[in-house]
Design a protein around this nucleic acid. Structure first.
Lengths: 114, 114
DNA sequence: CAATGATTTAACCAAATGGTTGACTCTATA
DNA sequence: TATAGAGTCAACCATTTGGTTAAATCATTG
């Protein structure tokens, strides 16, 4: 009855299924932050944010390094790639998908807006 | 207090966060199936599978059309693209990501294994 | 029209989720 | 060394999830 048999994909997708957590990802995507900095925009308690971070960390979507009395939190895009690969695989079966995505990527290269 | 304010991304990622549901997606990716056909490989009850299908349907990850007394269930890869775009966006911040994914896509084109 | 097949709905249950508050730990510093 | 700041942990709570079984619906067919 191994309890830790929960797949990595389960953890990743579950972590991304919450808008607070996606918002955290967005917040640190541009620049790494401390836990308090991450928490500032939210109205919920720091403890709640701490829990969200643990969910993201368990899914290996973020990394932390201790720096003196705080922690620096940053994205782990390697893991995002795992999820992306799963999705991409199933999109194969949707014919024109590959070309569509490649076009999308081309656009982003030339016009790194947003 | 609008309860239906749950975002589409929440629904999509939540739906994908369960290995039974990903397995269902895999099952119908090659060829559309009826509900009973989908349920066959699983040990859980048909009612349980029916609930999983509802979760996938709510996320618009699958489509159904009624055909006489059964239903035909099929993938909706358009929605997978929505999730993929979210992920891709955040992977931008990971430098070499675009090229890596494009290479991956190239490989898949030439070698459609699996 | 009665019976069978395909699927959903309802009622129920245990476990997990997402939040809270309050106590705790660890580091830096006055 | 006492105190403040950064963050986690523990206990608690309401809601959601993922499963069950049993009854209900709806179309097909004898």
């Amino acid at each position: 009855m191994v309890k830790s048999e929960i797949g990595q994909l389960d953890l990743i997708f579950h972590a991304l299924a919450d808008s607070t957590r996606r918002s955290i990802m967005r917040g640190i995507s541009k620049k790494q932050k401390t836990v308090s900095e991450i928490a500032k925009p939210f109205t919920m308690s720091l403890a709640a944010v701490s829990k969200h971070l643990k969910v993201l960390e368990n899914a290996k979507l973020i990394d932390r390094k201790k720096e003196g009395s705080y922690q620096i939190v940053s994205l782990n895009a390697e893991t995002l790639k795992t999820a992306d690969q799963w999705i991409s695989y199933y999109q194969q079966f949707w014919g024109n998908r590959l070309d569509a995505l490649q076009e999308l990527l081309e656009e982003k290269k030339h016009e790194p807006k947003h």
